[in-house]
Design a protein around this nucleic acid. Sequence first.
DNA 1: CCTATCTCTTA
DNA 2: GTAAGAGATAGGT
Length: 983
Amino acid sequence: MKQGDHLFLVDGSGYIFRAYHALPPLTRKSDGLPVGAVAGFCNMLWKLISEARDTSVGVTPTHFAVIFDYSSKTFRNTLYPDYKANRSAPPEDLVPQFSVIREATRAFDLPCIEMEGFEADDLIATYARMAREAGADVTVISSDKDLMQLVGPKVSMYDGMKDRHIGVAEVIEKWGVPPEKMIDLQALTGDSVDNVPGIPGIGPKTAAQLITEFGDLDTLLARAEEIPQPKRRESIIANADKARLSRQLVRLSDDVAVTEDLDSLFLNPLDGPKLIAFLKAMEFTSLTRRVAEATHTEAAEIAAATIAIDSPEAAHGPDLDPGEAGGSPAADGNRPPDGGGGNPGSVAQRRAELAVAAKIDTTAYVTIRDAETLRAWCDAAREAGLFAFDTETTSLDAMQADLVGFSLALPVGTPEAGTFSIRAAYVPLAHITGIGDLLGGGPAEGQMKLDAALAELRMLLEDPSVLKVGQNLKYDMLVMGRHGIRIIGFDDTMLLSYVLDAGRGGHGMDALSATWLGHQPIAYKDVAGSGKGLIGFDQVEIDKATAYAAEDAEVTLRLWHVLKPRLVADGLTSVYERLERPLAAVLMRMEERGISIDRQILSRLSGELAQGAAALEAEIHDLAGESFNVGSPKQLGDILFGRMGLPGGSKTKSGQWSTSAQVLEDLAAAGHPLPRKIVDWRQLTKLKSTYTDALPGFIHPQTKRVHTSFAMAATTTGRLSSSDPNIQNIPVRTAEGRKIRTAFIAEPGNVLISADYSQIELRVLAHVADIPQLSQAFADGIDIHAMTASEMFGVPVLDMPSEVRRRAKAINFGIIYGISAFGLANQLGIERSEAGEYIRRYFERFPGIRDYMDETKAQARENGYVETIFGRRAHYPEIRSPNPQVRAFNERAAINAPIQGAAADIIRRAMVRMEDALEAAGVNARMLLQVHDELVFETAEAEAAKAIPVIVSVMEHAAMPAVAMRVPLRVDARSARNWDEAH
DNA sequence: CCTATCTCTTA
DNA sequence: GTAAGAGATAGGT
């Protein structure tokens, strides 16, 4: 920086508060995120950068920085503990805007400066001095009197909201003293806002008069006796110390050891597209237009950015004390419906309150039976910008479900006007009547034509500017997808709840409604029956269906109003927007594709298994001396431990003899022939019943493929689960079991590709606990279990006995699982004392792991939750249980969750990026399955070689750029005709 | 008919 | 020692 340059220093924190109070409240239309201060801030920055010369500043900046307060605690608190003590917490709808404003600053490509222990004013003073000394001019964008002490020949201030230049003359005019006397003046007057004491009875006018008369504070205090007014004189003499302290408090530090040098504040030309992407995300339409014009950018071609409102990379929570950040930390499970970090006072919060307060009236719903009415509802939904949507079908299985009708719920009015409410309607499409009577039934009266209704609905569902709110929308996306309609632009209340409250209870609509709305919706079984009396939804009377379906939509919309503001308040927006919401559409397509299964292979296997099991059963009955149900653990226990008198190992918690594989193996090892046969019989019958016999039943009648269902909100850690059928527990460990996998095949001319992460959880552990030996071993590609064994037992890696490596491997897994001597002893079949010794030695070699475990436990205990490196939270409300067993269990789970969860986050990120990456590479490979650390694809045989490097690259780089791992991720991938050979 | 228990499969 | 889902049996409703 040199003479002639001009540095603009924006007092960001000061501006935020001023903009918040001066401007009318404004919220992002699509989700109610409060953005009033953000809007004011962006407008100010834009004005400064683009037209400063035309304002009373009169110059164009060459250098620019925005300065923020870091936290409310600074060095001034050590001088005077009560400094700023009477300052109340920022308004709750301003809180989430702090991080957005930092995002805004970055979108403008401006340096965003803050420093722990210092106020923005100190940093401004420091940079102003540095620039002054370099010969440059400085304009401080603020109207705060605390900064006026900086004003001088080279430094002035500018009040952007009033377009007013503040120089030496203006300071004298306003305060009656020149800028360099402002410190003394403030020392006398004090500041009630910042709780600076000053001298009681002395205001700005008197202070200016005194300073002018005596010259400075020290002279005044020394000659206080000369003051003629008795009251004033006594007060100054009595409070001289307070004045001196106050002077220290108001004097700005201009010698902070700042990290950014002046040259790094150089003002670069605007990055139009980057800024526009941000402004679009904020939905600031007129500023978007102005920026587009000025930067000659085609705004329509730029997608709205994903705003990381509190991304893990910047998650220290500036400006906030932890206790103020988002309501109570809520360590324990039971929260009142209005707890957990809402924003009282904001528009969003008003809506949330109203969403809870008004009673739900299921008789007020409308049944839409004609095109005109539906059109009117759809127009109203477009006008509102959001609505809740729910489909009603004939089956829980989305791939088999036929659409019967759909419901809508819309917000009406505004909370400001006190008229906010929700109206909801149901559109019956395929209800039938008269089933069971002799005429055979037919379509019910008063329903719209399916095509006409879907044409109208399509306009809404495919319009990205209208937010669709649903509960488990993946289901509705599958159903609508089968009618050729894509749902674009949505929020899912189930996923919102999952991101906010994983571990605190279920995320189904009934549970959410009970927790947040205190309302119990009509139960499905009350409209469609259950068990033998279960009827399809198409047979439900339309009036009943309307009450049920419209209520679901209304409840969903109310839940959204409660949950969405919490997302912002808790800083979980980026987890939701990057890890959850986009994955729903990806999983939908995977489920839709399904995987091909060879019936013949399974049928042949089933026959072989039946034969083998029958032969074993005969031998078992023979050895037992009587016929009994081998599959009954109770009968088996009676025979083994009662009649045959074998030594019983352990009991189950209900007091039965355990007949677990472990117990039976022990008996077999002791020389008894029967238990081994039982173990073998169990393996065969397990494979037969769970896999070879059950899987063909899942083959879809039309697609001839098997379509699993992935649950996104089932686990506490962030993993997916799979059901109907569960494809995440298809056997692989034994040769017999692996035969099941040969039945999972590619279509003719195609192959399956299996790509799996190598040791992902240990790599995550090496990263989060920062263990140098582990990281080095992974970087060098060394056998990690052998390395562990070598470190622990001093055995060379070369020619290591397999037993030694096995033990180290068990310990490595144990560590991930929150190790206990009891568990490790069980796993290895050794004494608990020996296992304890192993653990002790392990921690001695890898002390960082013990630190990680202790820190994680402490964090869980303190907050009630733990976090992955990507910001996902897992709650453990029972971590403080007085029951030591419960507590220990929760501690182990809490230790495991950041590891398992980060691995789950990584593969989620890979999945979200995968389809675009494959398409960009020009490869037609379809992602079919996810098995925690493995992805399975199907592609034309000729394309496999091209697909594999793309898949591997996406997976290996999935953590970037959010997290730069200290450890490389490795992926193995292979293609083959069936899953067994590909894996 | 529904739910709990036990066992077994996976990462 | 972590995280899941499913099948068979047994017992209560």
